[in-house]
Amino acid sequence: MPLFCIVITLYCQNFLFYFSWDSNAGQSLAAFISLFLPLALSLIFTVFFYMKSILILRSQQEYNLKSTKSYIRSLTFYSFVQLITYGPLITYLFLCGFVDFDDKVSITMAEITENLASISGFFSAMIFLCQNSSNYKKPLINENDNDLTQDMI
């Protein structure tokens, strides 16, 4: 479903390019849609599905209380990292579509948002390594098949 929405935005972009090839406004709108919308939709879907997963895990806490709590914490961290690292870049791209920044401000904002985006991998890897270093050492508390999280995260 998230990918379907991204592909729809790409079709919208092509549609706009096709019908407004001679118009600068149409082209900039198409460029704005192609740059901003797929990223924004992805981020919204990421946070939305993490929140839905957390709700499911919270409702199934009777399966394995301790590990479920740690998985909820990991999912919250992942969604938080995505928001913090890619959020500013997407906001910057969004603002660029409407506001004319002067060169110095634009370069500074681009540098900061690119730096934040490039540190996303570090945080994601660290969350996963920290989570798993404790999980690998100890045996699973509940090896019941109903523990939905044990194969996933």
Binding site: M1, P2, L3, L39, L41, L43, T46, S53, S124
Partner: peptide
């Protein structure tokens, strides 16, 4: 790489949700 990373993060969230919601999830 930036489009792939963001789309893949979205896909991870979706697959996590599907694995929890769908009992017959084929990973």
């Amino acid at each position: 790489s930036i489009y792939f990373s963001i789309a893949w993060a979205s896909a991870i969230a979706f697959l996590v949700y599907q694995s929890l919601a769908d009992k017959n999830f084929d990973s």
